[in-house]
Amino acid sequence: MSSSLEKNMLILRSSDGEEFIVPEVVAVMSKAIKNMVEDECASNTIPVPNVDANILAMVIEFCKKHDESEAEAASDLKTFDSEFVNRGQEALYDLITAANFRDVKELLDALCQNVAEMIKGKSVHHIRIQFLGYQLFEILTSNFIWNIWCDRDFD
C-alpha cells in the first residue's frame, strides 16, 4: 500500500473523507502536520479534522504555490496571494480557521491582512453583524426600544 506511493508523499484526509496526495515538503508548511511527521506519529494517512475537502484543496493550492515559487520573484507571490485571498467571506473565514488550526503561517498572514483591509472602513454596527452574529433587526429594534424607553415620561 505505501509502496505504491513515492517515499516523500503524504495522504491528507479531510473531515468529509476525501483524500489528497501531497508531497511532504508541501504538507509540512503546516506546523501542526510538521510536528506530526517529526514525531513519526503520522501513518500513511493524516486526518485533517474540522477542514472539509473544498477548503483543504485551497490550502494545498496555496502551499504548493509557495513551495514552488520560493526562488521566484516576491512580487509574483504577492499578486498570487492577493488573488488567492480575494474570495467570498464564507470561504475566507473557513480558510482562516483552517490556517489557524493547522498553523500555516504564510496563509494566515495573507488572510488576516485581507480581512483587515476589508473591515478598515466599516462601521461598528457592520463589524458586530459580521463577527458577533448580531442581526440587523436586533440592532434596529434594540435602538428603537431604547429610544422609546428614553423618551417616555417618568411621572
Binding site: 467571506q89 464564507e90 473565514y93 482562516i96 480557521t97 459580521q130 463577527f131 458577533l132 452574529g133
Partner: peptide
C-alpha cells in the same frame, strides 16, 4: 456565514 464569523470572533 454567521457561524464562521463567530468562530473567528
Amino acid at each position: 456565514l454567521r457561524s464562521a464569523g463567530n468562530a473567528i470572533a
